[in-house]
Amino acid sequence: MEHVEKARAESARGELVLRERREPGAPAVLELRANGVFVMDTLETSTEQALAAAALELVADPRAVLVAGLGLGFTLHEVLADSRVERCAVVEIEEALVGWLRDGTVPHGPALLADERAAIVVADVAVAMAEARPASYDLVLLDVDNGPGYLVHDLNARLYQPAFLAATRTVLRPGGALVLWSADEAPELEETLRSVFGAAEARPLAVRLQDRDEHYWLYVARVPSGA
């Protein structure tokens, strides 16, 4: 297997690398790494798609959606595939990553970001959430890590704490939902969500990854319809 570096960037959080995996007789695969740690690739995208699809089923009218974390765009793609969605804001802290999707370094990026319903905000999601207008979203997807036990950056730990979750509750409309992805069960997260929202649930989600069955978890908290 051959690895070819396509792009590299340095930020306050460290090194971000986009590289291509090549095997004879197989399509090239783009792979994103942060500080040497695998984040995602273009071969196995079922987890991102499953997160978005499952979350969209939870809200009757998801006209306005916020996705925390752009990645390689597959969560955004799944959100935009839902005809009920009128607006999807994606908050991404790494400006270089947004640039790679815009300029075609990630080949499917330009067409994806050209959708007039998509708005990309380069910012720390904690700051963006604090500055967002109250009751402006029907659905918020937190897709920056593989859960509180698998952080891309240590600073992301605050995204699973009461202050950030309370700010997220504020931007949700009545009947809206916050959905967080986790590779493992996270009972402390469920309890924190319950303390902020009044109720929360953990939903197991079966995903097929490269001919093997995996189980992940969605943590869901809602704002009551009459709130």
Rank of each mutant, 00 (worst) to 15 (best):
M1V: 05
E2K: 15
E2F: 03
E5A: 08
R8G: 02
S11K: 00
R13C: 03
E15K: 01
E15I: 00
V17Y: 01
P24T: 05
P27D: 08
L30T: 10
G36W: 01
V37F: 06
T42M: 10
T45V: 11
E48G: 15
E48M: 11
V59A: 10
P62I: 00
A64L: 03
G69D: 07
F74S: 01
F74C: 00
F74D: 00
T75G: 05
L76V: 03
H77W: 08
A81E: 09
D82G: 10
V85Q: 04
V85M: 09
V85G: 11
R87Q: 10
A89S: 08
E92L: 04
V98F: 02
V98E: 02
W100T: 03
D103W: 00
A111R: 10
R117F: 04
I120C: 10
V122I: 15
V122G: 01
D124I: 00
V127W: 08
M129Y: 12
E131I: 00
A135R: 15
Y137I: 00
Y137K: 10
L139K: 01
D143Q: 05
D143L: 01
D145C: 11
N146E: 07
G147L: 13
P148A: 11
H153Y: 14
H153R: 07
H153G: 08
D154M: 07
L155W: 04
A157S: 15
Q161N: 10
A163G: 03
L165E: 13
A166G: 10
A166V: 05
A167P: 01
V171I: 15
V171G: 06
L172V: 01
G175Y: 00
G176Q: 00
S182G: 14
D184F: 08
E185R: 15
E185V: 12
A186H: 04
P187M: 07
E188S: 14
E188I: 13
E188C: 04
E191S: 10
T192D: 13
L193N: 09
V196I: 14
G198C: 05
G198I: 06
R203V: 14
R203N: 06
R208V: 12
R208K: 07
R208D: 14
L209D: 06
D211N: 11
E214A: 13
L218I: 14
Y219E: 09
Y219F: 14
G226T: 15
